[in-house]
């Protein structure tokens, strides 16, 4: 079992401590921005979650390319794990984004490029899982999923640009705003970002481990 290993137990413990510390810093040791107050603090969570989601979909693409080149099932497992975890994070982006937007912009949904790109990617990945479900032969599914993962991520910059020019009046997005803010924000922000990235790596290792066990069992069951 994944958590039988002493090393993984230590990692999990450190991650829980790190997340608790992250929450504590965000609540007590980040400056209160006038007018935005607590709503702004959502961003110490929201932006790292969004970063992790996009990173994960990037990993799907890399795993897809590697699978098509090497035809090694290991890369298919990496791709599937990254797609699943990426979608978990992406749904969190789509929930926390509107929660932030409601008090700040006055309305929960604005066609802002980042948020819109997140939504479109999320929808593409719903299709990705349906393709995996209904694709047929396992080896064919692996190939098709790899191709779709590549296409989906290549679409990201194009979606982002077209939405940006489509609704140019929507300007305010979080990261630029944060960089302009006074000191005391960047430290906690980057701590949170790094922590979520490490958490992501840990989740990937966990999921890949399970997928490998599953595949071993299923390949021998006749």
């Amino acid at each position: 079992m994944f958590l039988h290993s002493r090393r993984n137990q230590i990692w999990l413990g450190l991650l829980i401590l790190g997340l608790a510390l992250d929450l504590w810093i965000i609540v007590n040791h980040t400056p209160m921005i006038p007018q935005q107050h607590w709503a702004q603090k959502i961003f110490y969570i929201h932006v790292p979650v969004a970063w992790t989601a996009f990173l994960s979909y990037f990993v799907v693409m890399i795993a897809g390319i590697a699978y098509l080149v090497k035809k090694d099932n290991r890369w298919d497992r990496v791709g599937l794990a990254a797609a699943e975890i990426g979608t978990v994070f992406m749904s969190l982006v789509l929930v926390t984004g509107p929660i932030w937007a409601k008090p700040i912009w006055g309305k929960p949904w604005v066609w802002e490029p980042r948020l819109t790109t997140s939504l479109i990617l999320f929808l593409i990945y719903i299709g990705y899982f349906m393709l995996r479900e209904f694709g047929g032969h396992p080896e064919r599914i692996a190939r098709y999923a790899a191709v779709l993962g590549i296409i989906a991520f290549l679409d990201v910059p194009i979606i982002f640009l077209s939405v940006k020019f489509w609704a140019p009046e929507v300007q305010s997005h979080p990261q630029v705003e944060m960089a302009k803010q006074p000191t005391g924000i960047l430290g906690p922000f980057f701590y949170s970002l790094a922590l979520f990235t490490i958490l992501y790596v840990f989740m990937m290792l966990f999921r890949i481990h399970t997928l490998k066990l599953k595949e071993e069992v299923q390949s021998h069951a006749v």
Binding site: L23, I26, W38, I42, V95, I99, W100
Partner: peptide, 8 residues
């Protein structure tokens, strides 16, 4: 809002 988003 903060509590909702973070706890989610």
């Amino acid at each position: 809002y903060f509590v909702t988003a973070t706890s989610l």
